[in-house]
Amino acid sequence: MNKSLYALVLSSLMIALGVVLPYLTASNPQLGSVFLLMHIPALFAGLILGPKYGFLVGVVTPLLRSLIAGMPPLFPQALVMSFEIAGYGFFAGLIKQLLPKKDLSVLIALVAAMILGRAVYGLAAWIFYPLAGLNFTLKIFLTAAFVTGLPGITIQLVLIPLLYFGLKRTQALDGLENV
């Protein structure tokens, strides 16, 4: 199969996962900002498919989920999340591409993408939240980015490498990375 077509199909699967996974916390919408389930597919797409597809998954997922499920609200939350999650996918793929092909590069790319994606979130929220009449301060940013989401960050740091190395061991990722 054509690698680009395969990457597009996998990207579509990641977008679908990003739309569906938050339903696990739908009974309590506040849990979405704790477990960060929508972030996982974009980070994973960036690592296995590269920055272009990671970015694509990150941009589309929150907007599509907002249009389908009404959550998160399109403006400003889904818009801000679109920037943030696109940052995760893009930076995960870019940093992994730039590092030597070692197992540790996956973890370094993941952590760096999580930090840089949160910086993108802060910038986007700083721009769009006041336009929507919402208050956004450094304290709100730090709490939302690093305190509230700590369980989700932990899930990402455990689950994504497990999935990545499990698929790598089965050779399912051979010839696919950075399409």
Rank of each mutant, 00 (worst) to 15 (best):
L159D: 08
V19Q: 02
G18E: 04
N2S: 11
I108Q: 12
T61S: 12
L49S: 10
A109D: 11
L98A: 06
Q156C: 11
I160L: 13
M1D: 12
M81Q: 10
E177A: 06
F91Y: 13
G175P: 02
E177W: 01
P22S: 14
G93E: 05
L150Q: 07
L8R: 07
M81E: 12
F55I: 15
H39A: 14
K3W: 00
F75D: 08
L64M: 09
A45W: 15
T148L: 13
A145T: 12
M14Q: 06
L104Y: 13
A124R: 07
L31T: 09
S27C: 02
L21D: 07
L98N: 07
L24N: 14
P130S: 11
N135Q: 15
L49Q: 08
N28H: 06
F128T: 11
L123S: 14
G149K: 02
V106W: 02
L13H: 03
I155C: 13
P76T: 09
P73F: 15
K96P: 00
A125R: 00
V9H: 05
K102C: 04
T143Q: 12
G152I: 00
S66T: 10
D103E: 09
L138T: 15
V158R: 06
P62H: 08
K52W: 11
L176D: 03
I115N: 07
T170Y: 08
M1P: 04
N28V: 14
L56P: 00
I160Q: 01
S82Y: 05
A125W: 01
L21A: 14
D103S: 14
A42F: 13
Q171P: 00
Y121R: 00
V120Q: 08
I15F: 04
I115T: 15
L159Y: 02
G70W: 15
I108L: 14
M38W: 04
N135M: 15
N135T: 10
L134S: 12
P62C: 08
I40N: 05
T61E: 03
I127A: 00
F136A: 06
V19N: 03
N135W: 15
M38S: 11
L107Y: 09
Y164L: 02
E177I: 09
S66A: 13
Y121F: 15
I155T: 10
T148P: 01
Q156N: 12
G93D: 03
G166M: 01
V9K: 07
L107P: 00
L47P: 00
Q171I: 00
F91N: 12
G46L: 07
P76M: 05
S11G: 13
I155S: 14
V80F: 06
T154E: 05
I85N: 02
A172F: 03
L123M: 09
L131E: 13
A113E: 09
G70A: 08
L131R: 03
P73Y: 15
Y6G: 02
